[in-house]
């Protein structure tokens, strides 16, 4: 009997909950697979999808967002072997699952930790609460391909932001596979959008886009490119997370700065009286 012929996977972009090819029709070869080479137009389409998803996702209850992030951890756990087959070390997959779980639990706690009542000197009820900033563009770290990616997506979306992620150009297969995890986790389409291809092509479009509220430059390794992206981001005063140092330890406790940088604090005053 002849050996079974395997059904291969096509690695595509993840935009608005769907898996389109690049509108440019281009691809590049990684680990014997043709991966979509996203264009500037793909980046703009992804921003449109991310913007459309903001209202529903930011408006969902924190409990609901936490449940969905936890569901993503469950799905990731179930696909452990698939990531290992792509070359992601088993330990890294485990750490990525644990990170999803850690962030999932933050969904309904950050407002209490980061907001609260302010004792103003007058007869007013005064409350500060964090809110998502909106659409966040993210340049994911080149490696670790999975743990790095999860570590930049989860803190952005747990609070209600939506993201457009430029995945690691050299190790994009884990990113597309993670998109499949997210697509089966009840995460509404458009909350996470993933672009594969060249950072130099997609990131400048995202940095200059006037409907993007913040940019996370974590994965930018070229200092000149990082500075250029930050200059572009200044045009509409995007919130900026600067590049991570080359020796950043992705297994360490991430802290809350990744979440808080992508939040706005809203303070509401109301008089007290009868």
């Amino acid at each position: 009997m002849s050996e079974r012929v395997a059904v291969r996977k096509t690695y595509k972009l993840f935009i608005g909950g769907k898996f389109p090819r690049s509108e440019s029709g281009r691809s590049y070869l990684v680990q014997s697979s043709n991966v979509s080479l996203a264009s500037r137009k793909d980046a703009r389409d992804a921003v449109v999808a991310a913007r459309a998803a903001v209202k529903g996702w930011a408006g969902a209850t924190a409990y609901n967002r936490g449940q969905i992030l936890y569901r993503a951890a469950e799905m990731l756990e179930g696909r452990r072997e698939q990531f290992v087959a792509l070359g992601v070390p088993g330990d890294e997959v485990d750490a990525a699952v644990d990170r999803w779980v850690w962030y999932a639990g933050w969904a309904d706690k950050l407002s209490q930790v980061y907001g609260g009542a302010n004792p103003v000197a007058g007869p007013y009820f005064n409350l500060s609460a964090p809110e998502p900033t909106g659409v966040v563009a993210v340049v994911a770290p080149e490696r670790p391909a999975l743990l790095g990616l999860v570590s930049v997506i989860a803190p952005a979306i747990v609070t209600g932001n939506t993201v457009v992620v430029a995945a690691s150009p050299t190790e994009p297969l884990a990113a597309v596979t993670l998109a499949e995890v997210l697509a089966t986790s009840d995460l509404p389409g458009g909350v996470v959008n993933i672009l594969t291809g060249r950072i130099t092509e997609t990131a400048p479009t995202l940095a200059a886009h006037m409907d993007v509220n913040a940019i996370d430059l974590t994965g930018v390794t070229d200092a000149d490119l990082a500075a250029d992206l930050e200059v572009k981001a200044a045009e509409n005063l995007k919130r900026v997370l600067r590049p991570a140092p080359a020796d950043h330890d992705w297994s360490a406790d991430p802290g809350v700065t990744r979440m808080t940088t992508l939040l706005e604090t809203k303070t509401v005053w109301h008089p007290k009286g009868v």
């Binding site: 000197a121 007058g122 604090t265 005053w269």
Partner: peptide, 9 residues
């Protein structure tokens, strides 16, 4: 209304 305890921005 402004107050030192109340975040503004």
């Amino acid at each position: 209304k402004f107050d030192p305890t109340s975040p503004f921005g």
